[in-house]
Design a protein around this nucleic acid. Sequence first.
DNA 1: TGACATTAGTTCGAGACTCGTACTTAATAG
DNA 2: CTATTAAGTACGAGTCTCGAACTAATGTCA
Lengths: 395, 395
Amino acid sequence: MDRPGGAGTEGLRRDNTAAVLRSLRRRGPSTRVELAKDTGLAKATVGVIVADLQAAGAVAEEGSRPGVRGRPGRPVALRGDDVVALGLELNVDYTSAVVLDLAGQVVLSESRPGGGDTADLLALARDAYAVAVGEGRRLVGATVAVPALVRGDNRTIAWAPNLHLDGAGLADDLAATLADLGAGPAPVVRVSNDANCAAYAESHHGAARGAAHALYLTGTVGIGAGIVQDGELVRGGAGFAGEVGHMPLGDASAVCGCGRHGCWEASVGLHAMLAEVQMLELDTPLRTAEAVAERAATDPGVRAGLERVGRGVGLGIAMLSSVLDPEVVVLGGYFAPLGDLVLDPARRTLDERLASAVQVRPELRLSTLGIRAAALGAAEQSLGPVFSGGLDLTS
Amino acid sequence: MDRPGGAGTEGLRRDNTAAVLRSLRRRGPSTRVELAKDTGLAKATVGVIVADLQAAGAVAEEGSRPGVRGRPGRPVALRGDDVVALGLELNVDYTSAVVLDLAGQVVLSESRPGGGDTADLLALARDAYAVAVGEGRRLVGATVAVPALVRGDNRTIAWAPNLHLDGAGLADDLAATLADLGAGPAPVVRVSNDANCAAYAESHHGAARGAAHALYLTGTVGIGAGIVQDGELVRGGAGFAGEVGHMPLGDASAVCGCGRHGCWEASVGLHAMLAEVQMLELDTPLRTAEAVAERAATDPGVRAGLERVGRGVGLGIAMLSSVLDPEVVVLGGYFAPLGDLVLDPARRTLDERLASAVQVRPELRLSTLGIRAAALGAAEQSLGPVFSGGLDLTS
DNA sequence: TGACATTAGTTCGAGACTCGTACTTAATAG
DNA sequence: CTATTAAGTACGAGTCTCGAACTAATGTCA
């Protein structure tokens, strides 16, 4: 029980097939010779693997690219028509679904207000399946992003402070729902932390694309982080990694909802921000932040308040950078609508607080995926095994 | 250039051989059937692999264990007589060498005072080679631990604030020295950060053995951390992960050597600790801490000072735990001689500051490896490829 | 004491895979 | 129209894993 790849020669084939798929995802359409060079496999081997993938509907040939001497190569590309993955998000005030195909295209993206209910989530899953999976396609996996602490089994929930959830049943319920719908092989169902999912999405599709070491921060009432190191999520011993909202960091006078003093989110969480700008909360964090941004255009007092919040954000990022040294930090949640109003002071504080003159400041960017980040990352996670050799499309 | 294992069937054999070696390391002497069960390979395959390893001198049969029905199994064990790795540490005030054999035994461990000089290090390497490697043995790799920022190539140094080093040459010089000595295949030479090496050692041999998620803290004049997640070191985008000394955390009045205020090491570094207990620095941090510990037995003022330092330590660990969620935190450097004088207040502070009621406090332990931790971890890192399939002993 | 049950390890042939070489195919250059 | 160049395929050799059958070594029980 040691090697994930599988021991025998067919395990070897799975790994090599996955390598070809990864190469196609990273470099786009490629000829067999290009694939052979990129993967290190022999031309002949790539030929066989591509033929298998073609038969499975995972790749297709494109029109050839002429113009050079010699026989023109026939590029092969990932094909999204047959294989998809489903990502869901169950949050406090909304529910989302994203269907992602093998080629990385978003086939469906839907959010519904009023969340927190498992039945709503399953209904959304059924609808998404009907629209975007249906007959011809194969659903390889589904992942539910939840604002909760998920155990190492990737199925059960250890702690969900804001959600009333029967921690054990969610994955099983979804698996049963999907099994009713589909005829083919049962998809792999998993549960995952929402900040981790969003971080994964940003590092694959969004603002941190291409960065192997990224940090995602989401700001709502609380502050959460998702950590990507070497392309993989850092989860910690019990899944608590990234619970940065209660870092003892802010000024000691600020009282946090947890009862302690000086927590980071007591200085930069949504409520602290609203107190700084002396405005009231609207129905969702995003809409609230949009209203604040609008007011900031005319009100210098609001801008000054956001400046103070931004400095607090920068201080926390300095802290996290000292520990993790990310290349990119992506800010999501309520930070996104505020943009440079918060980012600029954060950058300045960060520059003052870098660990050394040699360390480069991580790039601070705004989330580009918005509310569907978590669901998208969940779908991407479900697609993961296809590219890592955990799932064989050709069998 | 994608799959590290190697593509062909001999790469598969390398992976399976490594799996057998890992199983032997983890579970100790095992019969072929036990190995087959543990690795998932077929009995026949394990038989072939063990025969190859035996021929290479990597494993040997032990006396059989009778007493049960049926033919008694013949346990096979890792054999240290033929394969060793060298770990070196080049520090400011000392130089160390450790030779570790394949069975995990320390064959040689030596420290010499007065460090910082490359020539001294090479001389120590030569001596260690002569004593512990010599004729019959094969040196598979050597790693130098340095208090410096090491680039992603694992050979060159990007920044060494306390050391005068020609950053590029160290690895090459050592490789040349070893090539002169040995006849066999040239060992792989690498350079690595000292805190990372120590963390690796503690998680394999020391106080954090068995923990997949561990954090190592070393306290001297500065504070450094080594982070182990899922058994692997976290290095960050540019190798700066774990540079926690300048986390903006302490009270803002404390001025740090870096010129800023509020750095963690300005509150809990060696000099801050000495100021708290009103004592003077001796020749090395360890000896200084021993003197302080001795004085604490009789002087309540010293105990009170250490109490304050311990609270600062606990606060920083609370911070790091929020981000990384380690199972075990190991304290090394000057903290080790002080023991519970620092650990007890740190534990109390940590209990007060945990992110939630659900999160379990990471275990705080003292380093058991002392000054040779870094060199030992360096040796262990050099042995790594043997167990990960990166190096084939049988060819 | 000796046949039997039980477990460990080996032998052997089948099947799967990768690889290098030689060959075929399809385009451009002159 | 021919030479050249490069992509893709066919094929045989080599390596590997696997399951089944077989041999080996020990305890059990009559």
